[in-house]
Computed example of a mutant assay.
Amino acid sequence: MKSVLIVDDHPVIRAALKLVLEREGFKRIHEAASVGEALTILRQHPVDVLILDLVMPDGSGLDLLERIRSSAWKCVVLVFTSLDPLFFQERCMRGGALAYVSKTNSLDQLHKALHALMAGYTYFAQLVSSPMNPLQHSEKKMIDSLSNREMNILQHLARGLSNKAIAKAMNLSHKTVSTYKTRLIIKLGVVAAVHLRDFAIRNHLI
C-alpha cells in the first residue's frame, strides 16, 4: 500500500497527515479538499488507501463511501473525523470503511490504524457502553433510523444552511430538500425545523 488519497477540507490537517504518511513509507500522496476533487483523483489514479473526513463542503464522506463501495475502486478507507463514533462508526462500517479514528485522539491512533490496514486488519474504536437516560436512548434510536442522506441534510440544516444552499451542495432540488426537512421533523419528533439544530448539537452530530 504505497498510494494514498487524503480527503479533508482543512489544509493544516492534510499537511499533518502527509507527514505521518511519509514516515509510514507512502510514496504517492494525493490530496482533495472536497468530494468532487476526490472523485476526480480516484478516476485518474489508482489509490491503495483513502483517508476520509466525513464533513466536506460539497457533500458527505458517507456519500463518498457509498460511491466507492459501488465502484470498481479497490482502495481501503480509513475514516479520520471529529464526529462522534457512537453515531457514525457503525454507518462507516456498513459503508465499507475498514478503520475509524477520531481527530480528538493522538496521532498515535492513526499510526496504529494504518499499521492494522497494511497488515490486512480493521481498526475501530471500542465504544464504551455507558448508561443512557431514557431521552438519550430514545434519541439514539431515532438517529440510528436515519438514512445517510437524511443525516447529511440534518447536519447541513444544523449548521444553518438554507434549503437553497443545501440543494446546491448536494445537487438536489429545493423541493426534495424541503421534503427531507419535513421527514426529519417527523422522524426526530421535534416541533419545528428550528429545533433540529438543538437536536444535532445535543447529540454531537456536528
Rank of each mutant, 00 (worst) to 15 (best):
Q136T: 02
D9Q: 12
S71N: 01
T179C: 13
L110S: 00
F88H: 15
T176I: 08
R91V: 02
A33V: 14
L196T: 03
C92E: 09
T182Y: 14
L184P: 00
F87W: 10
L188F: 00
P131H: 01
A72Y: 03
S129Y: 09
E31F: 04
K74V: 08
L50G: 00
I186E: 13
A38V: 09
N163H: 12
I51F: 00
L83S: 07
S70T: 09
V49L: 14
F26W: 03
A15K: 15
H45V: 11
R91Y: 02
L50S: 03
L127K: 15
E24Y: 12
S130M: 14
K141L: 12
P85N: 04
D8H: 09
L65N: 09
L114H: 01
H10G: 10
Y100H: 09
S106K: 14
H10C: 12
Q44Y: 07
N105G: 14
H10W: 09
D53R: 07
I201R: 05
P57L: 11
A192K: 15
A158H: 02
N148S: 11
S3V: 03
G61I: 10
V55S: 05
K175Q: 11
H10T: 13
V101P: 05
H156L: 14
F80Q: 10
L21A: 11
L188A: 05
F87L: 11
A167Q: 04
N152L: 11
T179A: 12
K18L: 13
I6V: 11
T122Q: 11
S70Y: 06
D198G: 10
A33H: 09
V20Y: 01
